[in-house]
Simulated scan of single mutants.
Amino acid sequence: MKRLFERSIKNKETIVIFYMDQENKVTQRYVCVLKFNDDYALVYCYYRKKVRTLKLENILSAGPRKGIA
Results as ranks from 00 to 15, higher is better:
10 K>L: 12
30 Y>R: 05
22 Q>F: 12
6 E>G: 06
34 L>M: 10
37 N>K: 13
41 A>V: 09
18 F>I: 08
6 E>S: 12
61 S>F: 10
15 I>R: 05
53 T>C: 12
57 E>Y: 14
64 P>F: 07
10 K>H: 10
55 K>T: 10
64 P>V: 11
69 A>D: 15
64 P>W: 01
52 R>G: 08
38 D>W: 15
5 F>V: 07
69 A>E: 15
40 Y>Q: 10
4 L>H: 02
36 F>C: 04
36 F>K: 11
62 A>G: 03
16 V>M: 07
21 D>H: 04
1 M>D: 05
2 K>S: 04
57 E>N: 13
11 N>W: 12
16 V>N: 02
34 L>I: 14
33 V>Y: 07
43 V>T: 00
14 T>M: 09
54 L>H: 00
41 A>R: 03
47 Y>M: 08
13 E>D: 14
66 K>D: 06
54 L>T: 01
41 A>I: 05
58 N>Q: 13
13 E>I: 01
63 G>A: 07
6 E>Q: 15
41 A>T: 08
38 D>V: 09
5 F>I: 05
26 V>K: 13
65 R>T: 14
45 C>N: 04
31 V>Q: 00
31 V>W: 00
30 Y>M: 11
62 A>M: 14
61 S>P: 06
63 G>Y: 09
60 L>N: 14
3 R>Y: 08
39 D>Y: 15
56 L>G: 00
66 K>T: 11
40 Y>C: 08
3 R>V: 06
60 L>Q: 13
44 Y>S: 06
53 T>K: 14
36 F>H: 07
55 K>P: 09
43 V>Y: 01
42 L>P: 04
31 V>R: 00
46 Y>R: 05
36 F>D: 03
35 K>G: 06
31 V>T: 00
68 I>A: 12
51 V>T: 15
58 N>R: 15
11 N>H: 14
57 E>W: 13
12 K>A: 06
61 S>M: 12
18 F>A: 11
59 I>L: 05
22 Q>G: 09
33 V>S: 07
43 V>F: 04
48 R>T: 11
57 E>R: 15
68 I>N: 10
35 K>L: 10
19 Y>W: 10
6 E>T: 11
57 E>H: 14
33 V>W: 02
27 T>W: 13
58 N>Y: 02
13 E>R: 10
29 R>F: 09
17 I>G: 00
51 V>H: 05
5 F>K: 10
18 F>L: 09
29 R>V: 01
26 V>F: 10
37 N>S: 05
10 K>T: 08
59 I>G: 00
36 F>S: 03
29 R>Q: 03
19 Y>I: 00
51 V>Y: 02
44 Y>E: 03
13 E>T: 03
3 R>N: 12
56 L>H: 03
59 I>K: 01
56 L>E: 02
31 V>Y: 00
23 E>P: 04
5 F>Y: 15
